[in-house]
């Protein structure tokens, strides 16, 4: 075996081991490194009231209700069949819409209502001009669960 080949084998073996270790570690972080909990996650592992978390999912259809005071918004975060009721006081981002993704930061109160102090809007990986969206995009959107 020539020295060159020895170095190549060594380098490739080291790389394979390194990549394997790195990717295994990263994918094992799956739950810990997630940016938010979905309503389905919360159904499986409930979070105690008062603990600050991020809740993410789709804003359910026809669920946004503006309270008479004008700044309080009630909405439902859905992830497939699992849903969580949420409330936010303030100005949400423009992209906060029904059937669109949302990440809310806040905590549950004692009645199981998620009180958000920050709202971030999430959009999915589909980009299209408005005409096309009117033609077919919006219908597609409704059947879609949380895109990630």
């Amino acid at each position: 075996m020539k020295a060159k080949h020895q170095r190549l084998t060594l380098a490739l073996l080291a790389l394979a081991a390194l990549f394997g270790a790195g990717l295994l570690a990263a994918s094992a972080l799956k739950d810990q490194a997630s940016y938010f909990y979905s309503p389905a996650d919360l159904q499986k592992n409930p979070v105690p009231p008062g603990k600050h978390i991020r809740l993410g999912g789709m804003v359910a259809d026809h669920s946004i209700v503006k309270q008479p005071d004008g700044v309080t918004i009630d909405f439902v975060v859905a992830d497939g069949p699992a849903t969580t009721k949420a409330r936010f006081r303030g100005i949400p981002p423009d992209l906060f819409k029904e059937n669109s993704g949302v990440v809310a930061e806040g905590a549950f109160d004692n009645n199981g209502l998620f009180v958000a102090d920050t709202i971030l809007a999430k959009h999915d990986e589909r980009y299209m001009p408005p005409e096309l969206a009117r033609k077919n995009g919006r219908q597609e959107h409704k059947t879609e669960t949380l895109a990630r």
């Binding site: 990263a26 999915d124 589909r126």
Partner: peptide
């Protein structure tokens, strides 16, 4: 890891287009 980050983990960033 950068490439897979939006697939492995819930993220604010959308999935791959």
């Amino acid at each position: 890891i950068i490439n897979r980050s939006v697939v492995w983990w819930n993220s604010l960033h959308q999935g791959p287009s």
